[in-house]
Design a protein around this nucleic acid. Structure first.
Length: 970
DNA sequence: TGACAGACTTAGGAAACTGCTA
DNA sequence: TAGCAGTTTCCTAAGTCTGTCA
């Protein structure tokens, strides 16, 4: 019979089984051993699964399983997984059950004797009816009729029905078996969870060590490492011996009887504990096994759209884990379940000059791209295109190949995508535009020090002028800014200047500022002709440097100008604000383009490097001196390179929509995990999902102190059992990206609340709330749940999903276009609020509101007056009965209606403006809302797209405008 | 495994532009 | 037509996330 493979996530299955991974392992192992599916015993994969949290089971079905009616049971893996708890929605695509659909796994026959035995166990273990239900259900599950809904386990008694159930048919059942189980455990307690074995005792010691982390963390870490190293060596040797033994066993396996199997089983259990104990040993083989896993994955690539893999979860009761003490943390997490701070290293200072990157030709092609549609690209077409491109490249210059009207839309979305990692095939541009040279101040513009005029050297004057130009800005009121500026400024001074200028407070830049203001004013007051001339000159520069030719198409460059020198304007309390951003020279700039097309550097200069790396999208780069960051010249958002990525982003977010419910179920389950690390991860993920928080990368000390979900500190939240009539309220108050304050009072699930209480226990305000979590751990987990999933995707998904929902509920198809636009803006606002897109209240806000209010008041007065005259006219008309008076009254009435309408509009405008005072709508529209939703909405509701997107936005979202019909739904 | 570099997206403020109103 | 307010564009800081290296 043909051998088949059945691969699925063990931890997922463990969840399926009520969260007991160990039990699942055992179940599978015994199931295979005691069933007639003997061939599987040949494989080591089951062992692999123990380490990798994934089963890779090769099954050669020999016989079949029958149900009560003796009908053969043909079970596919998806049936297996879909027959789970009856009160949950089916797992379906969220489960990456990487198995060929058609596999028929024929299981062991469930005989009466075994059923009786299970009942016996239930009685012996005093299992509650629901437990019994579970027990039965496990049996039923093997026959794939699931009914149980209660998986809570409240007893410390070993939970053995799995073993019981798997007792070979015809085997004598009795106390002997129980004894065996208990003996196997040593302490007898955790035969299944393995929590009380030697390893755990050792671990709890470790944990105790960790509880004194603040005193001895480095020492302990070193000790721990040494111990592990030793352990590692020994166990590695042992492992090889075990492996050999195992091979021998496999050879003889067909001759072995059930009894022998039982013996092995017992041994395996003992070994199993040791194996778990030596997790690190197995990590050694991780790479090898990963490869193996990869191979298997390749074989079964049919199903997987979305992958759900859980980490092992542990049995637990309803109380928060801290009360259990973490001495009992699962074996897997010996090191993982420590606060991450234990493992942190000292940060090295930022170097301004970074090592030169490898050359393009040396680079491996990355595999970072590809949304669903593009993945199905026809290779042949690609090859053909490649050949055609090669021909082209060998022929005329790309510039010549550009069509006459290149600006007309390039429908790149209808073309084949480049192979993964390749961003372009040809790229030609003119290089960046450098900042104009410094023009020294006229002699009459004076700088004063300590009240005395002083002529500065050109360099000192230039830097001084940066500060002078900012005198009206809030920055100069900040000590850090002034301190940094002064320190850096002195670097540009001559020796004598340094000696004289020792105190910034004694510096008088006001005359310089007046000069700059006058210049600015002069600029504003230019004649029309002058303005026109300047505009033309500017357009010429754009024409020459603002475009590039990529793959034969002319595309706009986003930022073709090199950042001019100035003072660093870090946001929030940035420790580097005020430092001097030095002038970037061609010698600092790396050019990236096709071979043989390098732009000429400015006269008398040369480029730092010319590179031909088609795996990146930038055209030029340089390293900025303040933070040591690389800055790039890149394409405009309307370009193919940006658009394609954007499209892909929204496709991943749509994928998340399909699996988010599963993921939510998973993290909710994880709230109960015994492992602190997993609970922290699940609570943080809950915040990311529910509140659209950012991931929260760790930040250096030389950056502003801002946080996101993973980097929240104890001081950033406060817990309230009750607040404003709501229970379990978490108050968030922290600075997020750009030092924008995030304040939110959120009622949360009780379990989240309890977990947070535990996470905060014995911590100082400045301690990490999630001390066992960082964004790498989070994203790794998310990617395990769904390919391509990262924390950021949740924001995109939640934003787009909110827009879709809001539009659906707020749009009245019968309303006017104006009303529809209002509905759209409201939906957009809901998203902006969700994402906390704030802006500073515009400086002119108060004034403009005042003006608006004046208009409203004037309008009201006008209405009052008109009303009075209307009444008078009406009276007169009634009194005199004259036609002229009647007409006049009618006119007045119309005037009154018009005025009232105008007032209404003004009032709406005032409300709208007030509501938008601190909300920035643009960010979400540009970065988070799938444009196809808006396009579809416009098409469906006959709203011109121009009402929603301005020209730039229409350019950026051209792909969506072209491809989304009115039927599109996110 | 953590630190770091690099590449890219997301972000708000400032400057420039545009259109309305008196 | 100037002045103003609102809108758009530009600018660049500040994030996210991945890959590499010791």
């Amino acid at each position: 019979m043909q051998k088949t493979e059945w691969i699925f996530s063990a931890s997922l299955a463990a969840w399926y089984w009520g969260g007991f991974w160990e039990r699942m392992v055992r179940t599978m192992k015994d199931l295979l051993r005691h069933s007639n599916v003997r061939a599987c015993l040949e494989y080591d994969e089951l062992e692999v699964s123990l380490i990798e949290t994934q089963f890779v089971v090769n099954v050669t079905p020999l016989t079949y399983v029958a149900d009560a009616n003796d009908d053969p049971l043909i079970i596919t893996p998806s049936q297996f997984l879909n027959n789970r708890r009856s009160n949950c929605t089916p797992l379906e695509p969220a489960v990456n059950l990487m198995a060929p659909d058609a596999i028929n796994v024929k299981l062991l026959e469930m005989d009466r004797q075994r059923r009786e035995y299970v009942s016996d166990i239930c009685e012996r273990l005093e299992i509650t009816p629901s437990r019994k239900g579970v027990t039965d259900n496990i049996i039923e599950s093997l026959t794939f009729v699931t009914t149980a809904t209660d998986y809570e386990v409240k007893t410390e008694v070993p939970y053995t029905p799995v073993e019981a159930m798997l007792l070979p048919a015809g085997h004598q059942i009795g106390n002997e078996y129980f004894a065996m189980i208990e003996q196997g455990d040593g302490a007898g307690k955790d035969v299944l969870t393995g929590l009380s074995n030697g390893m755990d005792r050792h671990k709890s010691k470790d944990k105790e060590h960790h509880s004194h982390k603040h005193k001895h963390k480095d020492k302990d870490r070193e000790k721990c490492k040494d111990k592990n190293r030793e352990k590692h060596k020994d166990k590695h040797k042992e492992k090889h011996r075990d492996k050999d033994k195992h091979k021998e066993k496999s050879k003889d396996k067909e001759r072995k009887h059930d009894k022998e199997d039982r013996k092995h089983d017992k041994e395996d259990r003992k070994h199993g504990r040791e194996e778990r104990k030596n997790k690190e040993d197995k990590k050694l083989d991780k790479e090898e096994k990963k490869k193996e896993k990869g191979k298997n994955k390749d074989k079964v690539d049919k199903v997987s759209c979305v992958e759900v893999k859980n980490e092992p979860m542990s049995e637990e009761d309803d109380t928060p884990m801290a009360s259990h003490s973490f001495n009992q943390t699962s074996q897997d997490s010996e090191d993982d379940d420590q606060p991450l701070a234990f493992r942190k290293k000292v940060k090295v200072e930022v170097k301004v000059e970074k090592p030169v990157k490898r050359k393009a030709e040396d680079m491996a092609v990355d595999d970072d791209d590809g949304y669903a549609a593009s993945k199905k690209k026809n290779k042949k077409v690609e090859e053909k295109k490649e050949k055609a491109d090669k021909k082209q490249t060998n022929g005329a210059s790309p510039t010549k190949r550009v069509k006459k009207e290149e600006e007309e839309t390039w429908k790149w979305w209808e073309e084949e995508k480049h192979e993964d990692g390749v961003k372009w095939k040809s790229l030609e541009h003119k290089g960046p535009v450098f900042a104009a040279d410094y023009e020294p101040l006229p002699a009459n513009v004076k700088f004063k020090y300590n009240g005395k005029e002083m002529k500065l050297s050109t360099a000192a004057e230039e830097v001084g002028s940066f500060y002078a130009a900012m005198l009206d800005h809030d920055y100069v009121t900040k000590d850090v800014f002034n301190k940094n500026f002064f320190k850096d400024w002195r670097k540009f001074m001559t020796h004598s200047e340094k000696e004289i200028i020792t105190d910034l407070k004694k510096c008088d830049f006001t005359h310089m500022l007046t000069y700059f203001k006058a210049k600015s004013e002069e600029k504003k007051n230019r004649t029309k002709e002058e303005k026109q001339q300047l505009k033309l000159e500017s357009e010429e520069i754009v024409k020459e440097y603002g475009w590039c030719i990529i793959d034969g198409h002319k595309q706009r460059i986003g930022n073709f100008k090199i950042e001019p020198p100035g003072l660093f304007r870090g946001r929030g309390d940035h420790p580097k604000m005020g430092m001097v951003k030095r002038r970037v020279m061609p010698e600092d700039v790396i050019i990236n383009c096709s071979k043989g097309t390098a732009p000429k550097p400015p006269a008398g200069h040369k480029w730092k490097e010319v590179r031909h790396d088609n795996t990146v999208t930038w055209l030029a780069s340089w390293t900025e001196n303040v933070q040591g960051q690389v800055k790039y010249i890149m394409l405009n958002s309307a370009s193919r390179l940006k658009g394609e990525k954007d499209w892909q982003k929204y496709e991943i977010a749509r994928q998340l929509k399909d699996s988010v419910e599963k993921i939510r179920e998973t993290y909710k389950e994880d709230w109960k995990s015994k492992e602190m690390k997993i609970r922290q991860r699940s609570v943080a993920l809950y915040f990311i999902d529910k509140l659209a928080l950012r991931a929260g990368n760790e930040k250096d000390e030389d950056q502003a102190d801002t946080v996101g979900a993973c980097s929240l500190r104890v001081e950033h939240i406060s817990l309230h059992e009750q607040k404003n009539g709501k229970q379990c309220v978490v108050v968030f108050d922290f600075l997020g990206k750009d030092s924008i304050r995030y304040y939110n009072e959120v009622p949360v699930e009780k379990r989240v609340f309890k977990n947070l209480q535990i996470f905060m226990e014995n911590k100082k305000p400045g301690d990490d709330l999630f001390d066992r979590l960082n964004t790498t751990i989070m994203n790794k987990h998310l990617n395990d749940l769904m390919e391509g999933l990262t924390a950021k995707v949740f924001r995109t998904f939640n934003a787009s999903n909110t827009l879709q929902e809001q539009l659906d509920s707020l749009t009245d198809p019968n309303s006017s276009v104006t009303e529809k636009i209002l509905a759209y803006n409201r939906a957009n606002r809901a998203v902006a609020i969700l994402c906390n897109h704030q802006r500073a209240v515009p400086k002119t806000f108060a004034k403009s509101m005042e003006n608006l209010q004046k208009k409203i008041d004037t309008k009201r007065e006008a209405i009052q007056e008109t009303e009075q005259s209307y009444k008078d006219l009406k009276k007169e008309a009634k009194k005199t009965g004259s036609a002229a008076a009647k007409i006049a009254a009618g006119k007045k009435e119309k005037q009154l209606e018009k005025l009232k309408e105008q007032l209404m509009k003004l009032e709406v405008q005032a409300t709208d403006r007030e509501e938008n005072k601190e909300i920035a709508l643009g960010t979400s529209k540009l970065n988070y809302l799938d444009p196809r939703i808006s396009v579809a909405w416009c098409k469906k509701n006959d709203v011109p797209i121009e009402k929603i997107y301005n020209k730039t936005q229409r350019d950026k979202f051209q792909w969506a405008i072209d491809m989304a019909g009115p039927e599109f739904v996110f």
